[in-house]
């Protein structure tokens, strides 16, 4: 499914190319908005999201013969996009887990700290803005699981990381997002005495 090593046949007649192009437009272009939104939130500000997505699609087109019809085209495209992001941003290839350090352990909170009221509505824009402030490795895994609803296994394939790493990053990402939402005073509902 994700084999990008096979390249398209160099000898193809016009009819086959037209058919391939129509198939690509039908299967792959459908996911353009999803990729562009993800690139906007994940690749920026270091990279130009539109450039990343355009290169992703051109690579996908080049290797479209290796894509198995009927399998998850969206996951295939996301994997290509993360390869593009990695290639363009050398530091991403050798990234280090962000230390947790200051995170608030809500589960074991002392009785006199500010607490988060789950019944208080979280504004979507606040969550989106807070997610954008997460470290890249947390932001990308949170986006892929929560927004794109990929399974852990699919995310592991997209990011080329073990499933256990995906799970631990996701746990940290959610906890960090919660910390940011709490420190943004709008969602703090009161003081527990």
């Amino acid at each position: 499914m994700f084999d990008l090593n096979k390249s398209g046949s160099s000898v193809m007649n016009k009819q086959e190319r037209l058919s391939r192009q129509q198939s690509f437009e039908r299967e792959a272009m459908l996911h353009l908005d999803a990729l562009l939104k993800a690139a906007n939130r994940i690749a920026r500000p270091r990279l130009d999201a539109e450039d990343v997505v355009q290169e992703t699609y051109l690579r996908a087109w080049k290797h479209f013969d290796s894509f198995e019809a009927g399998t998850n085209c969206r996951a295939w495209l996301f994997r290509i996009m993360f390869n593009v992001i990695k290639a363009r941003s050398g530091t991403l290839a050798k990234r280090i887990e962000t230390p947790i350090g200051e995170e608030i352990e809500l589960e074991n909170r002392p009785s006199n700290v500010l607490f988060f009221d789950p019944l208080k509505k979280i504004e979507g824009q606040e969550a989106l803005s807070a997610a954008t402030r997460l470290s890249p490795e947390h932001r990308e895994v949170l986006w892929l699981v929560v927004v794109e609803e990929f399974s852990y296994r699919e995310v592991a394939e997209i990011l080329e990381a073990p499933v256990g790493t995906v799970m631990s990053r996701l746990h940290r990402a959610r906890r960090e997002l919660r910390r940011l939402l709490i420190t943004d005073s709008k969602v703090v509902s009161g003081v527990r005495l």
Binding site: L32, D33, R41, Y57, K121, A127, L128, V147
Partner: peptide, 26 residues
């Protein structure tokens, strides 16, 4: 759950103009 839902709804509700990228790719 609330945190995830807020993020998901905001992200999916975002309106982006992909027409320029689409035209460039095609």
């Amino acid at each position: 759950l609330f945190q995830d839902q807020a993020l998901k709804q905001a992200a999916r509700g975002e309106i982006i103009d992909s027409s320029r990228v689409r035209a460039g790719i095609l």
